[in-house]
Amino acid sequence: MTGTPLAGRIVAVTGGAQGIGREIARQLAEAGARVAIGDRDAEAAEATAQALPGQVRAFALDVTDTESYRRFLADVTDLWGPLDVLVNNAGVMWVGAFGDEPESATERMLAVNLHGVIRGVRLVAPQMRARGSGHIVTVASAASKLAPPGESTYAATKHGVLGYLTGVREELRGSGVHVSVIMPGVVDTELAVGTDSGATARLQPADVAAAVVGVLRRPRFQVAIPSTIDLLVRVTTLLPQSLRDLVLRRAVPNQVEAVERSSTRDQYEARALSGTTDPKKDR
């Protein structure tokens, strides 16, 4: 793929120790970028950095803590120089009936998925604007435009991310700073374990990473994966509510039913939603 070259660009990837973040780091490093992966599990981040090709370095990062985020950015700058690209990838998800959702899970999703993105943008975008260049890419979700049953709060955070970045993008118009939002369907990662992919095939982390690389080379604001998700949203908005409900109930998975009476997500949720890296800690 041609377009803006990635070789030598300084990129930070949040939540980069595993899953989608790890694959984003891999593909960017293979393209010649210098990649800083930040993750609250510093040991896992270091192991990933050691395993990946090219120039990849690991740093401790808690996206819910401003001072942690400042230290992360300062460390990257001290190592390589000012950041060219921020990839907001860190995210967590609790799945189940809205009435059963623990308040701690609600708070954690808001803190990581929404405020974590806002925090990163506020810390990075002003310097990019001052330099007249930069790119902020956020891995959101198809839930930015759809809201599967069982993922109501998660969808709210992703709707919020899209709304926030829509406004930020307009404020940055003409500054030389690009803003992109990647909105994948269900991806085969630990975050989505036990859930249903609905009418679309389950994606791989490499699919999302390829979309990130693509928008860095040829900037676009919104990218849905697969593109049929965007078509579904566009078409259903033209339908009366009763028909829209019927179509979406067939196309969008009911995650309450998918995870009902199953314990497959317990270990992930206990760790990801506790605010620690200890998998034994209860949510």
Rank of each mutant, 00 (worst) to 15 (best):
A58C: 03
E23I: 12
E67C: 00
A258Q: 10
D75T: 07
A199E: 04
D207K: 02
M93A: 14
L203V: 00
G194Q: 13
D188N: 14
T2N: 15
E257Q: 15
M183Y: 07
R22L: 01
W94K: 07
R234F: 13
G8M: 09
A199C: 04
T236E: 09
G160V: 01
S227N: 12
T200W: 15
V235G: 08
D78V: 01
L165G: 08
V179G: 01
T264H: 15
A51K: 07
A199T: 00
S68T: 00
L162A: 14
Q241S: 13
P253R: 01
K281F: 11
L273W: 06
T77V: 10
N254E: 01
V235E: 04
R250P: 07
L238D: 10
D230Q: 14
Y268N: 05
V76N: 04
V121L: 04
F221K: 05
A47D: 13
L243W: 15
S180C: 04
A74K: 03
E170T: 15
A258L: 09
G198Q: 03
A211Q: 05
R131N: 09
V112M: 02
A97N: 15
T2V: 14
G150T: 02
G38W: 05
G275A: 01
I225V: 12
P126Y: 08
I229K: 00
S133V: 10
T2L: 15
T64H: 00
G176E: 02
F98Q: 13
R34P: 07
G116T: 03
I10T: 12
A211C: 03
A211N: 05
E43L: 12
P219H: 11
V63K: 00
S104D: 10
A270D: 15
V85D: 05
A74F: 03
Q222G: 08
V223H: 03
P5E: 00
G21D: 05
R34W: 11
E170S: 15
V186F: 11
E46M: 12
V187P: 08
V213Q: 07
D41I: 10
G214L: 03
L243Q: 15
R9I: 10
L61G: 01
A31Q: 05
P102A: 05
T157I: 06
R217N: 10
A49V: 03
K281A: 11
P148V: 04
E107A: 15
A90H: 01
N254F: 00
